[in-house]
Amino acid sequence: MDKYQWLKEAMNGETINELANKAGISSATAWRQFNNDLNFTAENVILIARAYHKDPVEALVAFDYLREDERGAASLRAALKNATNDDLLTEIAARLDRDPSLADQPVWRGDPKDLDRYIAERDATDDEIADTISKLGKPDVGLAAYHGDHKLDDEGNDAA
């Protein structure tokens, strides 16, 4: 959606003076930026979005202050940061219910830039993973159930 369409939908037929009043922008500034090819500042785009109960990130994308690919990254990081452990576990369980093969995928805890290399170099078989778990003396509930790093001593026992 471009800035013209976004603003038209947000304003829903209201005037620039009404927009300025709602957003807390002076009428002169609102008219100047409107008449200058909708060149609202990023700050004013955010104020307008909030005044009309619209997503400020979507507005910044529409006005070309953010790229489309930046929207998802910011939203995803915020959502993950604000999610409770129950939220995260519920989502994981729902995904596994939809596609049980996901349970066989490796869990990555490193730098995302190194993920492809990690997957290419990964040579542990499911049997080797199960053997490591059994050496730890833990029930076979899957690697995702363990938290933290586990190191084995020379006999294969949990050294932690």
Results as ranks from 00 to 15, higher is better:
residue 79 A to D: 08
residue 129 I to D: 02
residue 112 P to A: 09
residue 100 P to T: 05
residue 66 L to D: 05
residue 107 V to E: 04
residue 135 K to I: 01
residue 68 E to I: 14
residue 85 N to I: 15
residue 82 N to I: 11
residue 77 R to P: 01
residue 116 D to V: 11
residue 115 L to T: 06
residue 92 I to T: 07
residue 90 T to Y: 02
residue 100 P to K: 03
residue 80 L to W: 06
residue 81 K to A: 12
residue 89 L to A: 14
residue 65 Y to L: 04
residue 91 E to D: 05
residue 127 D to G: 12
residue 99 D to Y: 03
residue 131 D to Y: 15
residue 81 K to P: 00
residue 68 E to K: 13
residue 87 D to Y: 07
residue 109 R to Q: 11
residue 124 A to H: 07
residue 77 R to D: 05
residue 82 N to R: 13
residue 70 E to K: 13
residue 108 W to T: 00
residue 67 R to K: 15
residue 76 L to S: 08
residue 107 V to Y: 03
residue 112 P to Y: 03
residue 123 D to W: 02
residue 91 E to N: 07
residue 72 G to F: 13
residue 107 V to G: 04
residue 85 N to L: 09
residue 66 L to W: 05
residue 95 R to T: 06
residue 89 L to K: 15
residue 131 D to H: 15
residue 103 A to C: 03
residue 129 I to W: 00
residue 122 R to C: 06
residue 130 A to H: 12
residue 89 L to R: 13
residue 77 R to T: 05
residue 115 L to N: 00
residue 65 Y to C: 04
residue 72 G to C: 08
residue 88 L to Y: 00
residue 69 D to L: 07
residue 97 D to G: 09
residue 79 A to R: 13
residue 97 D to P: 01
residue 73 A to E: 14
residue 63 F to V: 03
residue 93 A to N: 14
residue 63 F to Y: 10
residue 114 D to K: 11
residue 77 R to W: 05
residue 98 R to D: 11
residue 104 D to R: 03
residue 105 Q to F: 14
residue 76 L to H: 06
residue 101 S to F: 01
residue 104 D to P: 01
residue 95 R to M: 11
residue 70 E to Y: 12
residue 71 R to H: 04
residue 106 P to M: 06
residue 115 L to D: 02
residue 75 S to W: 09
residue 74 A to I: 15
residue 74 A to Y: 13
residue 117 R to L: 08
residue 92 I to R: 00
residue 122 R to I: 00
residue 75 S to E: 14
residue 133 I to V: 15
residue 98 R to Y: 06
residue 78 A to L: 14
residue 63 F to W: 04
residue 124 A to Y: 10
residue 98 R to T: 09
residue 80 L to R: 06
residue 85 N to D: 14
residue 101 S to V: 06
residue 128 E to F: 10
residue 86 D to E: 14
residue 133 I to E: 10
residue 95 R to H: 07
residue 68 E to A: 14
residue 78 A to G: 06
residue 69 D to H: 09
residue 78 A to K: 12
residue 119 I to W: 02
residue 112 P to I: 11
residue 96 L to D: 06
residue 76 L to G: 05
residue 124 A to P: 00
residue 111 D to K: 04
residue 132 T to H: 08
residue 91 E to L: 13
residue 88 L to N: 04
residue 110 G to D: 08
residue 117 R to M: 03
residue 99 D to L: 02
residue 120 A to C: 07
residue 88 L to D: 06
residue 88 L to I: 15
residue 90 T to V: 06
residue 108 W to C: 11
residue 90 T to H: 00
residue 110 G to L: 07
residue 123 D to V: 03
residue 82 N to T: 11
residue 70 E to R: 13
residue 112 P to L: 10
residue 103 A to G: 14
residue 117 R to V: 03
residue 83 A to H: 00
residue 92 I to F: 01
residue 77 R to Y: 09
residue 96 L to I: 14
residue 88 L to G: 02
residue 100 P to F: 03
residue 88 L to W: 01
residue 131 D to C: 14
residue 125 T to I: 08
residue 81 K to M: 12
residue 128 E to T: 12
residue 64 D to W: 00
residue 75 S to F: 12
residue 106 P to C: 05
residue 104 D to W: 01
residue 124 A to C: 02
residue 81 K to G: 13
residue 72 G to A: 10
residue 106 P to R: 08
residue 68 E to Q: 13
residue 64 D to H: 10
residue 130 A to R: 14
residue 123 D to I: 03
residue 129 I to C: 04
residue 98 R to G: 09
residue 120 A to N: 11
residue 117 R to G: 02
residue 78 A to P: 00
residue 130 A to I: 07
residue 128 E to D: 15
